[in-house]
Amino acid sequence: MELTAGISLTRLEIGLLERAKSRLGEAVLDPGQWSSLMEAICGAAATTGAALLQSDVRTPDVPMTPSVADLLRDYFDNNLHVGDIRAARGMPLILSGRSVVRDQDMFQSETVMLRDPLYATLTRFRFRWFSGISFQSGPAMWVMTLQRTIREGMFDDAELRALGSLSETLTEVATLSHAVGKQVLLGTLNAFELINEPAISVSSTGLVIGLNRAATDLFDADFRVRNSRLYMRDGKASQALERLLWERPRDSEIRLPSRGRVGNVIVAGRESKKPILIRVLPVHGAASTPFLGARAILVLRDLEAERRPPLEILSEVFSLTIAEARVASKIAAGSSPDEIADALHISRETVRNQIKAIFGKTGTHRQSELAALVARIQI
């Protein structure tokens, strides 16, 4: 069957598309909105699912609608992203000035199209027809992919023109998201600096996006940034971090699979010094925008350095017991209640009660407030 730009079985609704377009700015401060925003676009375009993919660096931690989650998991697990024929044939068209591409632009017939392994996978998930809306975030080219089922039919010319109107707005939103996210991430790294915690932000591919001065101060021949990536002489630690960053999270947390009880901590050994402990934290809020690419914040603890939390001072200043001061110090350093209970060999209920007492005595309500307060009396 020849692929032609005929009339599809379902039609795009302009009014609904304009409404969805007007809401795209919501994703600047809350990247978690992307899924629902794309669902609104899908509803307007009579399309089952959507996702955001970068043209040259495709990673599994991208925003997507739940309807294509299983498809994209298979797409990445089977390395279909490496030789994606849509990217190979579609990007030259986009670079030539097209704001939207579709199957008919890349294949002469449906028979030829279905011979490609990607389309065989799509068929298994009852998908077939595609259109991609191009947009930019700085020098990076992105595509919002819209995926229709076999029954929904291919995208026609009128629908393509309507979808093209999203390209400019998506570029504006992506550009602003990158700028806002970068400032928020910088503020987070500076907050760790205030409590003398070395911290590095990295992408899912291990690219270093930002770091604070405390992190730079502990670099040596075994642990440093090289070619914009974190280099560790300890190969096992490097592999553990790489696996953790690449794995697409099912929620907002990052968890390190382990038989032991180290939680989300990687131990990076060094040749002639004590190890560095790397605590892996998720990126939240505007800093988690896909256009910045920050996947995690690595909080570093150099076991070679002497760190003596001023427990007596904390106790005296805020009228805390020594036990409460010990918990307060760990909260300020970013430890979770469960981690504190494990580290101090006390029950979780005891930790929760002590945290309530600490917040009451210090007049704080959140971990970030307590961290900033403790930072002011560090000596």
Rank of each mutant, 00 (worst) to 15 (best):
E2V: 07
T362N: 00
A296W: 09
L9V: 10
Q147S: 10
D77G: 14
R229W: 05
D30G: 00
A40T: 05
Q104M: 06
I278P: 01
C42K: 03
G263R: 11
I355W: 12
A174G: 04
I209H: 00
S55M: 13
R301D: 09
T350Q: 11
V57D: 14
I276P: 01
R161Q: 15
M154Y: 07
T188K: 10
F76D: 10
S99F: 09
R248N: 13
K182L: 13
R11H: 07
P257L: 12
A333M: 07
E369R: 00
S134P: 04
G181T: 02
R86K: 14
L303E: 11
A375R: 01
Q54S: 15
G90K: 04
T362A: 01
A162W: 12
S35L: 12
F76P: 03
S288Q: 03
L16S: 08
L12R: 00
A215I: 06
I195W: 05
G15M: 11
V62P: 02
I266L: 14
M64G: 03
I14C: 00
L207A: 06
A240N: 04
F130H: 15
I14V: 05
I355N: 00
V202R: 00
F223S: 07
T171Y: 11
L29R: 09
A294E: 02
S134Q: 03
R259Q: 12
